[in-house]
Amino acid sequence: MNLAGIDVNLVVALAALLQERSVTEAAKRVGISQPAMSHALARLRETLGDPLLVRVGRAMTLTPRAEALAPRAQAVVEELEALLAPLPSFDPKTSRRTLKLSATDYVQLVLLPTLEEIVSREAPGITLHVLPITDQLAAERLRDGEADVAIGRFDHEAPALDVRRVALFRDTFVGVARAGHPTARGRLDLSTYAELSHVLVSPRGTPGGIVDGALAQMGLARRVALTVPHFLVVPHVVASSDHVTTMLAHVAATFTALLPLTTFELPPELDLEPIGMTMMWHERTHEDPGARWLRGALVRAARPLAQARGARTPTDKKAREPQGPARPRAGLVTK
């Protein structure tokens, strides 16, 4: 049978007729006239090759074929209603949804505390599942539904037509040393900076980084005394030694508030490009009200970071600063 030639309204009429066992009552149930329902019954009889409803005395009864079709017809109608139903409304105050954010460690450190304040105020019942950025392309994870939103540095990923992007904020590099360091303070000249004892973060364990590349272009090299795979340990090492490190300013601001650390200006000759953080999401979640709310919350959480560096954040018509005290909640999952 060619389904393209089937009128879906006949399925609705069939379910009503088999439930009500009356043309008149079925017409009332569907909301059409009695003659229209009679015409639908005639078409169904012709299509199915069965009378479906037969008169027995003053009542109508179902044929054996109709008896078998009744529960299946009703199930199909319910599936159609679910399929064609509008998107469910999203009320952040009462929602119990799980929303998935894929983000780098850096983004989690500088953005997640402010985001969680917003979530706690406005959507205390949702679960925020934070996933790491992996070697798999972020666009693929969004496409596969593994994440609702991804935030990171995606310069290596070619733009995809089905993935939307918006710039959130940028960050610049600063030097970090222990408070009272005998040399690292103020603005250093290039030779003094290179002669210091440096800590390098290398997630893959490979030598060299952005700073080393910039120095090499000028025929210089720095002394790397320690290489570690993760930046979270670096501030603690620097705070208890004469080592220095070069890191993004927002990370440095976080740790200088917690540890006896100070920042210093890098030599202008290094001319390190600021790092931009981008938010991406797949087209299939663009109109999803829950995912839309999360994106708006992320824009607001990123706004202080951008303003701290004099940059601009994207606007969101529905974004408002949260009001009132934050309430504790247990819906945050990280891995």
Rank of each mutant, 00 (worst) to 15 (best):
V119W: 01
P124I: 04
T114Q: 04
D162F: 07
G186C: 10
S95G: 00
P92I: 05
I118Q: 00
P64V: 03
A160G: 06
T127P: 11
E157P: 11
A66H: 12
R187Q: 11
R96Y: 06
E79R: 15
R72K: 10
L80A: 09
T172E: 06
P88L: 08
S202F: 10
G186A: 11
K100W: 02
L99P: 14
D135E: 15
T127L: 01
L196N: 01
E67S: 04
A179Y: 08
E116D: 12
L128N: 01
A70Q: 13
D148G: 01
A158D: 07
S202W: 12
A73Q: 13
F169N: 04
A73V: 09
L80W: 02
A138N: 11
L83M: 06
R72Q: 10
T183M: 12
G152K: 02
P203I: 05
E122D: 09
R170Y: 10
L80F: 07
L69C: 02
A73C: 03
P182K: 00
E78R: 15
V149F: 04
L83W: 14
Q74E: 11
Q136E: 14
R204F: 14
V76P: 00
P182V: 05
A147P: 01
A59H: 15
F154D: 03
P113F: 08
V163S: 03
V130C: 07
T61E: 15
V76A: 10
A59I: 10
L109W: 08
T104L: 10
L142H: 00
A167Q: 14
F173L: 09
T127I: 00
I151C: 04
V199E: 04
A147S: 12
A82K: 12
E157C: 08
D105L: 14
F169T: 05
I118E: 04
A167C: 10
A194S: 04
T98V: 11
K93C: 05
A68G: 15
A167T: 04
D91N: 13
V176F: 07
T114L: 00
F90W: 14
A158E: 13
V199D: 06
D91P: 09
L161H: 08
V163D: 09
T127Q: 02
A158C: 05
R153A: 15
S197Q: 04
P86A: 15
A70H: 13
E122W: 10
L109S: 06
H156W: 13
E157G: 10
A150I: 11
V163I: 15
E195Y: 02
R143I: 07
E67F: 00
R65P: 06
D162W: 07
G180V: 02
V107Q: 08
D144S: 13
A184V: 06
E116V: 08
E140A: 05
L115K: 00
F154Y: 11
T61R: 13
R65E: 09
P113Q: 03
E81H: 13
A70C: 12
R164Y: 14
P92H: 07
A85K: 06
E122V: 12
L137D: 15
T63Q: 00
T61Y: 05
R165H: 12
P203V: 02
L142Q: 02
H198N: 00
A82V: 00
S191T: 15
R185T: 02
H181E: 01
R204V: 06
E146L: 06
P113E: 05
L131M: 06
V107F: 01
L69Y: 03
V166K: 13
V163C: 13
R204S: 09
V163G: 08
E146M: 01
R187M: 10
